[in-house]
Design a protein around this nucleic acid. Structure first.
Lengths: 131, 131
DNA sequence: TGACATTATCATGCGATTATCAAAAATGTA
DNA sequence: TACATTTTTGATAATCGCATGATAATGTCA
């Protein structure tokens, strides 16, 4: 369903949300917690920084912290940095011509399922990920 | 949501289902209908043959036809030849330890959505794809 | 200032998916 | 038999996500 990077990002952000604010968490610690190669974790975190989802602090006692309150940060925002599901693409079969006006036979049936997915990612927040 | 190959396969099978049985359709015709490179279409069709979903006829007036009645052929069977969504993998976050017994915080919420998806692919048949 | 910790960035390799090209095998037909 | 047609198969390339490693940039602290 989600790419590896997107899953790692969610796990990392969830870990951050479960920690004290104003106490940055280092990339290596996050990598350990998420079980991802440290260097790769760094890249993922940096992408989240550029997207404005995290703040980074360099130097000693540096690390990463949330730039947005956990309960205002939807999973969609995070996932969309890595996966591009549902951006412009709507038809299950990948038909170019398929639209609400000129639907393919399963357009409506799939639309209902697709909407459930969108709803989930749109309304679930990082706060919901904390144990 | 689906890989390119899976989408092509679905479109091709849908096209086949909309044609007379016992009249094989050539790979090039399918490729044109589906808008996929002809050689690549051939590969996809062959995979469906090996999976027992299609029958192939070689030589003049040859081509491909359904090996299973359209209304008994679920989308899941086709898609699973190319994508491996949901086979063993259940947790949205990709956690190894996550299970029904030891669930992650969104396990249930996501489980409901996930079940809708499974239901769709399991109960929708190729007959439903015909215009 | 200088030493060090930590993120930011660049360059590269690996593997899977997607795609192309062409030769080989099978089948019907003249 | 010889030929045209069509699937089957293998070799190869392009592309992308995943991952690694090294180096640069930037901040803290003594």
């Amino acid at each position: 369903m989600l790419s590896g990077s997107a899953q790692y990002a969610l796990r990392a952000v969830a870990y951050l949300a479960g920690h004290d604010a104003d106490k940055p968490v280092r990339a290596v610690e996050l990598a350990e917690a998420v079980d991802v190669p440290a260097n790769y974790m760094g890249k993922i975190l940096h992408r989240l920084v550029r997207a404005g989802i995290l703040k980074s602090v360099r130097g000693m006692h540096g690390g990463f912290e949330l730039a947005i309150p956990a309960d205002q940060l939807s999973l969609r925002v995070i996932v969309s940095q890595f996966d591009h599901r549902g951006e412009g693409r709507k038809c299950l079969l990948g038909r170019d011509e398929c639209s609400d006006d000129d639907p393919c036979p399963t357009h409506e049936r799939w639309g209902q399922v697709s909407q459930k997915i969108d709803e989930f990612f749109g309304t679930t927040t990082v706060a919901d990920l904390i144990d």
